[in-house]
């Protein structure tokens, strides 16, 4: 395929993905907006006002970057895992398999689709947060880079989960039992300075902690970890997951007999 044809194929996958999640917006765009608004009201306003400052900021300002990142992570992951698994389930994945689209374009198309939803949700949550607090961005390039790369990373994770899944239960196990606990324990609602030394150490092996703090640094200028280490870790994870996903596509894991 010519470079122009490859770009058309890539654009086709992305447009189809965007069309899918916007068609079912009450399932994809509305719930995170509602959930995050509740977080802002309950944790930010009601409880947060009694907590006082955290990391040098009022509690509402402190949790906003974490909540935005939480929405981006879950939406990027959920979009790819549900879309790709549905295609496997309905066998419409065969439309792609019989076509000349190379595997890396398939992967790039799905990841970009997942990022479109994740970042779209991130934008919605950011706009909602402005109703509760004022955001002044400390380091825009760091903020943008962190949120883009994190979205790509979790879209890749969703893709691998969908490749391995054989039934619908399999696509909810990782988000429920791994992603959600790691996100909640990843410094969204607190600074790890509050934890005893041992648990601070344990927290440092949670990759989501680095992403949340990298993003928080971009917005507030404070972080529990070095933001450049955060970026480096995200890039390493992206590389590893991309290689795994491409290998699985090449072997036809779960999609070819």
């Amino acid at each position: 395929m010519t470079p122009q044809a490859l770009f058309t194929a890539f654009g086709t996958i992305v447009i189809r993905e965007v069309r899918r999640f916007t068609r079912i917006w009450p399932q994809t765009l509305l719930p995170p907006a509602v959930t995050m608004t509740l977080y802002f009201i309950i944790f930010g306003n009601l409880i947060g006002s009694r907590i006082g400052q955290m990391g040098g900021f009022d509690y509402m300002s402190f949790i906003v970057p974490g909540l935005i990142m939480m929405a981006v992570i879950t939406s990027s992951y959920a979009n790819v895992v549900s879309s790709f698994f549905s295609m496997k389930f309905q066998r419409s994945i065969e439309e792609l398999l019989v076509s000349p689209v190379p595997n890396w374009i398939i992967l790039a198309g799905y990841v970009t689709g997942g990022m479109a939803r994740g970042l779209g949700i991130g934008l919605i949550v950011t706009l909602l947060s402005l109703a509760f607090t004022q955001l002044s961005i400390h380091n825009p390039p760091m903020m943008i880079l962190t949120v883009f790369l994190t979205s790509a990373l979790f879209a890749l994770g969703g893709f691998i989960n969908a490749m391995l899944a054989t039934k619908f239960d399999d696509i909810s196990i990782v988000p429920t039992f791994i992603l959600t606990p790691l996100t909640y324990l990843g410094g969204v609602f607190y600074s790890i300075d509050l934890l005893p030394g041992f648990w601070q150490g344990v927290s440092l092996i949670n990759p989501i902690l680095y992403m949340v703090n990298g993003f928080r640094y971009g917005i507030l200028g404070v972080s529990d970890v070095n933001p450049f280490i955060s970026l480096g870790m995200i890039l390493v994870f992206i590389t590893v997951l991309a290689v795994i996903a491409l290998k699985m596509l090449e072997r036809g894991k779960g999609i070819r007999h």
């Binding site: 395929m1 010519t2 122009q4 044809a5 490859l6 058309t8 194929a9 654009g11 086709t12 996958i13 447009i15 189809r16 069309r19 439309e95 792609l96 076509s99 000349p100 689209v101």
Partner: peptide, 12 residues
Amino acid sequence: DIVTTQAGYYGI
């Protein structure tokens, strides 16, 4: 959409 999407996969 189904038909045109398939064409897109072929780079059309």
